[in-house]
Amino acid sequence: MDITGVIDVVGVRRDYKGRPGFEAVRGVNFSVRRGELFALLGTNGAGKTSLLEVVEGLAPATSGTVRVLGHDPRRQRRVVRPRVGIVLQESGCPSDLSVTETVRMSAGTLTAPRPVGEALELVDLGRRARVGVRQLSGGERRRLDLALAILGRPEVLFLDEPTSGLDPESRQGVWRLLRNLLDAGSTVLLTTHHMDEAESLADRLAIMHRGLIVRTGTPAEVVGGQSARISFNWPPGAVPPLPVLPGGVAVERSRGGVVLRTGDLQLTVSALLVWANGHDLRLHNLNARSASLQEAFLAVAGSGGDQSDQEWVA
């Protein structure tokens, strides 16, 4: 991995015109290095797709600059497009064509396409080659989307929720494919709201909220500031009060449940169990979880935003 920015995004804003207008992306900076997978996380409506469309060159930025492989993806579309592959959040194929015919049509529009059979094998659709697109399941269509995106052997892949609608096994398959492409030197920018996907694949990630990037870094860096979580049902009957537990614990109670947040999971869990065993208590639904991307994400999404509420502009 070298440090050349394959994708550079500086100060990008994107407004939707209308009354009321909507500022979907409100000034975003990030860059993606050659050979890495960069994940954009965010709640629905956070602006991921709006941002991605600008980076892909499909939509104009209201302001700011984007460089993909050193070029403006919109003005120098002809130079950029042959070197990138795009999976849109939603797109379609003519339902009266077969899978092979669809891939062949796409291949005909590409500068240096893979053989049709190879592209289908890569997404595990080889068996479905002669089937009509109309007959494909949602997951198979998604894999066809992916086959078409990697058909041109792109240096850069843009994937907008590439595993949405896939069963767990197909998702694993797509992850394997992406890892292989990364090993072969491709650069990937993807959006997802599956935390495990980002945790498992991303070299670096950014969490978007209301049109802004609010956290960015490696998964470890982003998770780093978060606390681990212990939860259990408060035992019924007369129970002695919870002692002060070590590890810097914050306690939340709700309807018979208790949630502890701690900076030192092992220490806190040990003390909790010693206390419970000492009083002969059963802690039902006991659950202990290290800090995870999920926590970091929820911390951002649940915060209501440290940003002002001026997402609607006149």
């Binding site: 497009r81 194929c93 078409l148």
Partner: peptide
């Protein structure tokens, strides 16, 4: 219109082919 409603045009525009093509 059929290609547009099937989101085929949207996909084609994300590829190498230009609008005129």
């Amino acid at each position: 219109v059929a290609r547009r409603e099937e989101l085929v045009l949207k996909r084609l525009r994300s590829g190498e082919a230009g609008d005129v093509e």
